[in-house]
């Protein structure tokens, strides 16, 4: 199952459409990390609303992805983690250290606007 990646202005938006296998997730990671450079994106949003399980592998992959994207100069926000999934993740002992999270796509976009604007100011 491929995850469509949308380019919207300075951002890339990947919205996961169905449960992903490990290979799908790794492919998503590779695609996003390479496209961030291709499109000179400043932010990436990964929408995980449809995922009803985030196990250690998924968490580890998303975190690694966010760190790689950071190294390539962009921010990552994971949006749409469901209440049950969040609960299960903390029970399992999983955290997304160093990764921004937001309630949904809308909040994610607001957060990215906020953060990338801040960066702009600092850069100037």
């Amino acid at each position: 199952m491929l995850v469509p990646i949308l380019k919207q202005g300075d951002y890339l938006i990947a919205s996961i459409q169905s449960e992903l296998s490990d290979a799908d997730l790794l492919k998503l990671r590779d695609d996003l990390v390479s496209r961030v450079g291709e499109f000179h994106s400043r932010g990436v949003i990964v929408d995980v609303t449809v995922l009803d399980v985030m196990d250690s592998f998924a968490t580890r992959t998303l975190r690694a992805m966010a760190h790689m994207i950071m190294l390539r100069g962009a921010e990552t926000v994971i949006v749409g983690i469901q209440p049950e999934v969040a609960f299960s993740m903390v029970q399992l002992g999983l955290k997304l250290e160093g990764v921004e999270t937001a309630l949904d796509l809308e909040e994610g976009l607001t957060l990215l606007d906020h953060r990338t604007k801040g960066d702009n100011k600092r850069a100037r």
Partner: peptide
């Protein structure tokens, strides 16, 4: 601590 962490995962 788990409550705090889980809320964070949901962006709160």
């Amino acid at each position: 601590v788990q409550t705090v962490d889980a809320s964070k995962l949901m962006g709160a």
